[in-house]
Each structure stands twice: as C-alpha cells, then as structure tokens.
Simulated scan of single mutants.
Amino acid sequence: MPKGSFELVWADEFDRDGAPDPAKWNWDIFANKTGWHNGERQYYAADRPENARIENGRLVITARKEVLSDRADHGGQGYSSARLTTQGKAEFTSGLIEVRAKLPCGEGLWPAIWTLGATAPWPDSGSIDIMEFDRKASAVTGTVHNISTSGTAGNGGRVDVADACGAFHDYQLLWTSRELRFAVDGKPYHRYANAGTGMAQWPFDKAHYLILSLAVRGADREVADDAIFPARFEIEHVRIYKQRPRGSAAVDGAGQQVGDAAMIGE
C-alpha cells in the first residue's frame, strides 16, 4: 500500500439500537414495483425492523421468506430484505473503505458491499463491488464495473474466506488516483490500475456512494432450500479513511493510532 497513513473521515459504529441512522443511510426501494436487476427475487422494505435494525452494536440486514403484498410498491416478490445507501449523505472519491461484517450462509443469498457513481448513470460512472459472496462458489469477490469492462462483465478477483459465514472479517477497498486495491483483513487479492486512457476505463475521479444490500438471487443461483431463512447479514462497522501525508499516524474508529500494516499490505 502507499506509505502514507490514514485518518477517519466518516463512520457508523452502529452503537445505538433501533433503525439505521437517517442522517447517514437511505432506504433504497426504487425498483420494488418493476423488479430488481439480475432477476433478483427480493422486495426491499423501508423502515422495517424485521429487515434492517441495529442491535448489540451491529447493523443486521435480514432476508426473509415472506410476501409483503399489503405494500403499495410490492412487485410480487416472495422474499423480503433491505438495501441501504449513503447517496446524497456521504459520497467519496478516494480513500480506504472498510466494512467489518459476518456474511449469511445459504445458496441463493447475495450479500454485497459496493459503490455506485453519484454523478452519471451506470455504467458511465462505474461501480465497485468491494465484497460479494457466493456460497455456491465458496468465494468472496471484488469487482470493478465500467464502460471498458462491458458493464456487467467486470474486472475482478476472488479469495476463499473459509469462515466468512461464521466470523467477522474486514472487507476493504483502497482507492487512490492510481488504482483500486481489494483486500480482506489487510491482505490484498485484486488490483485494478488506472491505465490513463480516460473515463471509459477510469471513471473513479468522480464521487461514489456506498451500498449495503442482501439480495436473493434469480435463475443463476436460485435458493436451494428455504430453510436458510431468515438469513442475517451482520455489519459491525463502516469506516472511511483518507490518506494523510507521509509520516503521519493512522487513526482507527476508537481514536487509536494504527500502523500501515493494519490497513492493507503489499
């Protein structure tokens, strides 16, 4: 990683029980009626503790097998879940994004930590999948999407995290003007370099916002057994750092100084 250090500029430690902080998070429900992308089968509920709540210092996003047909924007989905964004409330153009999370198990679930460009439609402004988990493939993946990667195809890497469903891990993105670096617990597994060829390959000089979601897959990875529900995606913290000048000390979410090795190594 670059030899500079980092300071915390935005965080949610989820230290107050109840609904997600409305000053930091939006409920994202725009495609409930028309149907979500990629054949996803969930209805994203807004302000419903059964699907997203803070308890015991964690944000818990829960997918359930249920039909919420009494809701005006229901699109016939057979599952419920939640999708939260920082759009318009916290947007970033670089830094270190770290989300500490424990992932849900079960074939057909699709937990994700990702970003979308805030200034132009996708894929022109790009998107960054900091973490996606596919139980069937037994892998955590990190992927970059933009015009040059043919949109949905993406440029990505993967890493096996054997206890992703049983333990908390730090899912990280180091975002500089030169590259995007993906890591788990400080260990990088994929890099995407700025080739200097323009916006189609590097739209990442423009602001992005963060998304936390738990989808239910469609035909590509259908649910094998509804006994997996309710399924919990637990997030212990979200922290955004910016790089300080060389020689400065990094500061963690508790205000303690940490060395570069605690962030993302080479």
Rank of each mutant, 00 (worst) to 15 (best):
A153I: 13
W110F: 15
A120S: 12
K102C: 10
Y171I: 10
P111S: 12
D124G: 00
A101H: 09
W110I: 03
D163G: 00
C165I: 00
I113Q: 07
T93P: 01
C165T: 11
A164V: 12
G151H: 07
E132R: 05
P111V: 14
T143R: 02
N155E: 14
G126R: 08
I128W: 01
G126E: 10
S127T: 06
C105T: 03
V140H: 02
G156Q: 07
W110T: 01
G156D: 09
D163C: 00
K136V: 09
S150I: 00
T115Q: 15
V140C: 03
A101M: 08
W110G: 03
W114T: 12
W122V: 09
D134M: 07
R100T: 12
D124A: 11
S148T: 12
S148G: 07
G126L: 10
A118Y: 05
F133V: 02
G142S: 09
E107Q: 14
G166Q: 13
G151M: 07
A167Y: 11
L116M: 13
M131Q: 08
E132H: 09
G126N: 08
T141S: 08
P104V: 06
T149R: 01
G166I: 00
N155I: 11
W114P: 11
H145S: 09
S150V: 01
G166S: 14
T152N: 14
A164D: 06
P121R: 05
R135H: 11
R100E: 14
P123R: 06
L116I: 01
A137R: 13
T115F: 13
V161M: 04
I147Y: 00
A162I: 06
F92W: 15
A120H: 07
E132G: 13
K136W: 10
S127P: 08
C105R: 09
V161C: 02
V159I: 15
K136P: 06
C165E: 14
D170P: 00
V161K: 04
